[in-house]
Simulated assay, not measured.
Amino acid sequence: MNNFPHTNVTNEDISLVNKQAIPNMDLLVGGFPCQDYSVASSGAKGFYGKKGVLWWDIKEVIEAKWPQFIFLENVDRLLTSPGVNSDQSGRDFGMILRTLSDLGYGVSWKMINAADYGFPQRRRRTFIFAFGKLQV
Rank of each mutant, 00 (worst) to 15 (best):
M1D: 13
N2F: 15
N3C: 15
P5F: 00
P5Q: 00
N8G: 11
T10R: 15
N11R: 14
E12D: 12
D13H: 03
D13Q: 02
D13F: 06
I14K: 04
I14R: 05
I14Q: 04
S15W: 09
L16K: 15
L16Q: 14
L16D: 15
L16F: 14
V17R: 02
N18L: 07
K19G: 01
Q20C: 11
A21I: 08
A21N: 07
A21V: 06
I22Q: 05
D26C: 07
L28V: 06
V29E: 11
G30N: 09
G30V: 07
G30E: 08
G31M: 05
F32T: 02
P33S: 01
C34W: 09
Q35C: 04
Y37C: 08
S38E: 00
S38T: 00
V39I: 14
S41Q: 02
S41K: 03
F47A: 08
F47L: 11
K50M: 07
K50R: 13
K51Q: 12
K51L: 12
V53W: 03
L54M: 05
L54G: 01
D57S: 06
I58K: 09
E63S: 10
E63T: 13
E63V: 12
A64Q: 05
K65A: 01
W66I: 11
P67Q: 06
Q68Y: 12
F69P: 11
I70G: 03
N74A: 07
V75C: 01
V75D: 00
D76M: 14
D76A: 15
R77Y: 12
R77L: 10
R77C: 10
G83K: 00
V84E: 14
V84Q: 15
N85F: 09
S86Q: 06
S86V: 07
S86M: 05
D87L: 13
D87C: 13
S89A: 12
G90P: 08
G90I: 08
R91W: 01
R91F: 02
D92Q: 00
G94F: 00
M95W: 11
M95D: 11
T99S: 07
T99P: 03
T99F: 03
T99Y: 04
T99L: 01
L100W: 10
D102R: 08
D102A: 05
D102C: 02
G106L: 12
S108D: 14
S108V: 15
W109S: 11
W109H: 12
W109K: 09
I112H: 09
N113M: 10
D116A: 15
Y117M: 10
G118V: 10
F119T: 12
Q121M: 01
Q121N: 06
R123P: 04
R124T: 01
R124C: 00
T126P: 01
T126M: 02
T126W: 00
F127R: 01
I128G: 04
F129I: 15
A130D: 03
G132S: 13
K133Y: 11
K133P: 10
Q135M: 12
Q135D: 14
V136T: 15
